[in-house]
Amino acid sequence: MSILLVQFLRVEGLVEDLFLQKEYELGFTYTRSTGPVVGKFLTGLKNKKIFGNRGSDGRVIVPPMEYDPETFQPLNDFVQVSDAGMIESWCWVAEPRPAHPSAVPFAWVMIKLDGADISMIHHVVTDEPSRVVTGARVKASWIDQPVGLISDIRYFVLEK
């Protein structure tokens, strides 16, 4: 169709009648299950609970793993752990990147939750950066309406 004709139709308000328009969101047209292990963890988050599972050597892994990395055994002995724990390692991000979960300076942390043997990675937001040290106690701050994603834990906060 010539450009002149399209311009004519536009002026006459006829474009909308002529062209079908529909909003389109680019994404997968299917859903997939996260399975019995990752799904157990994510469903737990939705209820503000944190689940891990026991590895072949009995250690409690949080978040849970589908298979033991050493023995390759499927793992399904689930254990609920606390949403509070201790910082095992940390780094301070003075200048957060746009993709980061916090717009204000924060710490990435490895946290060993009470009841877990393996530490998980999340972040701590605080206005007292000097209190972010290895061994410090932290507790999860949950979003108001969890949906079953790792971001249901808004961040961890330092315990008083």
């Binding site: 996260t34 978040p63 979960p101 998980m120 999340h122 790792i150």
Partner: peptide, 13 residues
């Protein structure tokens, strides 16, 4: 599920 959605970068790790 556990890490990529947090956008933890290679330098921070």
């Amino acid at each position: 599920y556990y890490l990529a959605p947090q956008w933890i970068d290679s330098i921070s790790l």
